[in-house]
Design a protein around this nucleic acid. Structure first.
Lengths: 170, 170
DNA sequence: ACCGCGATGTCACTATGTGTCATCAGCTTA
DNA sequence: TAAGCTGATGACACATAGTGACATCGCGGT
């Protein structure tokens, strides 16, 4: 992240990163499948949190309510790691390749969420739609959080976005 | 598409494609920004259709109704070009890089749709949420259409997906 | 015959990503 | 202690994507 912030993602080569860490290009690629991955290795934990929270939602929660609970759990994780997400987001915002990767991540979340809903007995395509709509809510809330004034409560943004979605779909 | 179907996307080099067309690698990259783009050059027309249909929707249509009208317009274009989309879809399904590109395209559609809604006076974040939810509907309907039995009516799949979204969000 | 211009080719180059083999450090076991 | 094993790393070669710079060609206009 230091190098990316200093020179930008494109102008930082993998060899640079590796050297900075006292390693070799080859070793870098043994840990990260590609250059972008170095910024996304934590997303597995997020997904796990998401899925676990959905699974643990009250039995009488509707699909969208379960997703909302999952989103809140993810937001907790965001908030707990302080400034990192905002720095990371700024780097991603400056590079199309990283934005692509970010989308992949989001869709991965949606797929995982849909799976978790199916575990709860939600049928397709309701499970996928609830999950994808939920991820849309997350994307919009997170974007506002990352680009807006500091100190905003991401849970509140999530609640607002979700309410807006319901209003729009009604 | 011939080469991709024959050997797969990864194992077809740009030089192969160019030679097949009687051209040079360099010339290929003058027409397409990257290798994937050769499968996505038509999406600009789709987006234009989408946006135009939203703009032309009745003035009293709700945001989601306007989006639905736009999706139907896109579906018309799909249906009108016969088997191409299904072949294309099979190629994309076999390659992660192309799936990424497909997601970018979809998000681009969502952004364009949100813009068209704003033109109609819809405020944020309602515009973005309606558009993203609509694109989720499209993704699910299209996936069913592309992988399901031949001859299904994509408009009907779209209607069903949309109804499901409304039910889920209610 | 000449000019200008757009499209293409040629060449050189950088960076990503991968396969293969060598090396090294630490651990186990005789 | 020495030998051997193992996992992590380095060294090297290589294929391919993508780009910049310049040469060339064909063609319509003058």
């Amino acid at each position: 992240m230091e190098l990316f912030e200093e020179r930008g993602f494109e102008d930082t080569t993998v060899a640079d990163i590796a050297a900075h860490a006292g390693l070799t290009k080859r070793t870098f690629f043994r840990y990260f499948g590609d250059k972008r991955e170095v910024l996304f290795s934590g997303s597995e934990a997020l997904r796990a949190k998401f899925v676990a929270a959905i699974a643990a939602a009250p039995a009488d929660a509707t699909p969208l309510e379960a997703i909302a609970i999952g989103l809140d759990a993810m937001a907790d994780l965001f908030a707990s790691i302080g400034e990192r997400p905002r720095r990371r987001q700024a780097i991603i915002a400056a590079n199309p390749d990283l934005q692509e990767r970010e989308l992949i991540k989001m869709i991965g979340f949606a797929a995982a969420g849909a799976g978790a809903l199916r575990e709860r007995g939600v049928a397709e395509p309701a499970a996928s739609l609830a999950a994808e709509a939920g991820i849309a809510v997350l994307r919009i809330a997170f974007e506002r959080w990352a680009t807006g004034p500091e100190g905003q409560d991401i849970h509140e943004l999530l609640r607002d976005s979700l309410a807006e979605l319901k209003a729009v779909a009604a």
